[in-house]
């Protein structure tokens, strides 16, 4: 028997009515939410400040950072004047924009097709989702072997293309890999959005004499907009953090030469993997600022109306 073992007197019953908060309620709030808040603050919020502190030191991780290791803005200027960093930023931007253009319309189109009456739709939905479930690292190993110059892809197509090493091709190979990995996720989101649209609307369109594609374009697509916007946000955040696939497929050194380096790849290579933790922290802060900027701009100008409801409504609903 837990906390309900003692039958509370009638007054206590009213005491825990919504709106009142006695010491007991406060204690419960503290006990229930305390551990989560401590872990969250320690491992999600605090790292930002830890990074901020060490980003001003030329520090390799042994002992505390000494005053003579203080370099001021040195790590920041080093990063911001590094042409490989800006190459990586450019690649991230490219991946973000091209990823949206490549995957968005394709995902909507496939979702519209799969939203029709057909057999085996749930099976297709599962299979399309398979690449998303596999670890990036594991998928990357397989793809790296497949796309080698003497690998299965060239054997299958009868070509001799350097999918990974040729700097002109590599970035497009990466875009295709990303589409392969994440399109299933996009399709599932779009399908979910489409299924939330009442069927009466398209039926009404059909009664009024609209063709199938007119219905999709004028009725379904506008109603799918909120889903598309949220997918785009997730996709943008994802392209900002891209690391696993690039690091596994191209490795620590080749990604830069092949023209597929990303900010996170640069951060890992110049920071942790070369033992320069102070510099790694500075890069982390810069990358964090860039991502935050992009996210906030997107929130402000695109997502605004939709998330306002999504983020505040549950809190309002709760008493």
């Amino acid at each position: 028997m837990g906390g309900g073992a003692k039958v509370p007197p009638p007054t206590a019953r009213r005491a825990h009515k919504p709106g009142t908060s006695g010491w007991r309620a406060n204690l419960e709030i503290g006990l229930l939410s305390g551990p989560a808040i401590i872990i969250f603050l320690t491992f999600v919020i605090a790292p930002v400040f830890v990074a901020l502190y060490y980003s001003f030191y030329n520090w390799q991780g042994w002992g505390p950072a000494r005053p003579d290791q203080y370099v001021g803005w040195g790590n920041y200027t080093w990063t911001l004047t590094n042409k490989f960093f800006w190459q990586a930023v450019g690649h991230n931007g490219f991946i973000m924009v091209v990823g949206l253009i490549m995957q968005g319309p394709l995902a909507v189109l496939v979702a519209l097709l799969l939203n029709q009456k057909m057999r085996g739709r749930s099976l297709i939905r599962v299979l399309v989702f398979v690449p998303y479930v596999i670890s990036e690292a594991i998928a990357g190993i397989g793809l790296r072997l497949m796309l080698r110059d003497d690998g299965a892809m060239n054997a299958l197509l009868g070509t001799k293309i350097s999918w990974l090493a040729n700097p002109k091709i590599a970035i497009w190979t990466l875009m295709c890999i990303l589409a392969w990995k994440y399109l299933g996720f996009a399709i599932i989101l779009m399908l979910a959005g489409l299924q939330g649209i009442p069927e009466e609307l398209s039926e009404a369109g059909a009664v009024d004499g609209a063709t199938y594609w007119q219905i999709q374009w004028h009725i379904m697509l506008p109603l799918l907009k909120p889903t598309i916007k949220i997918w785009a946000f997730l996709s943008i955040i994802g392209s900002m953090q891209l690391f696993d696939l690039v690091y596994i497929i191209w490795g620590q050194y080749i990604a830069g030469i092949a023209g597929v380096s990303t900010m996170a790849w640069f951060m890992a290579g110049e920071g942790r993997l070369s033992g320069e933790l102070g510099r790694g922290s500075a890069i982390a802060i810069i990358v964090f600022m860039i991502s935050l900027f992009v996210a906030v701009v997107y929130q402000r100008f695109v997502l605004n109306r939709d998330t306002e409801g999504a983020l505040t409504e549950p809190a309002k609903k709760a008493r």
Partner: peptide, 23 residues
């Protein structure tokens, strides 16, 4: 409190990983 956790969604782990290692 709700906003604190909602904002947490905007913190990608990739960016926190270097300081986490230091910690």
């Amino acid at each position: 409190m709700y906003l604190l956790f909602a904002a947490g969604l905007m913190f990608p782990m990739t960016m926190a990983i270097t300081p986490l290692y230091i910690m």
